[in-house]
C-alpha cells in the first residue's frame, strides 16, 4: 500500500518526501478535526450524567 503510493508520487525523492509529509499531515488533520469529534460521543467514557 505505502510502496504503491510511493511509486506513484511524482518527482525526485525530495519532492516525494515533502508530498508524503503533506499527505500524512492531511490525514491526521482529517482524523483530528472531522472523524474523532464525530466518533467520540458514541464512545462510553463520555457519559457522566445520570438519567434525570
Amino acid at each position: 500500500m505505502y510502496g504503491w503510493i510511493w511509486r506513484h508520487l511524482p518527482g525526485p525523492t525530495m519532492v516525494r518526501v515533502l508530498t508524503s509529509v503533506v499527505l500524512v499531515a492531511g490525514v491526521v488533520a482529517l482524523l483530528m478535526f472531522v472523524v474523532f469529534p464525530w466518533v467520540e460521543p458514541k464512545l462510553p467514557f463520555n457519559q457522566v450524567t445520570t438519567q434525570q
Binding site: 462510553p44 467514557f45 463520555n46 457519559q47 457522566v48 450524567t49 445520570t50
Partner: peptide, 15 residues
C-alpha cells in the same frame, strides 16, 4: 457530583 465509573467506562456512575 456525578461522573463516570470505572474510568474509561460508562458502566456505572460515581457519586
Amino acid at each position: 457530583l456525578t461522573t463516570c465509573h470505572p474510568r474509561f467506562s460508562d458502566r456505572q456512575r460515581l457519586i
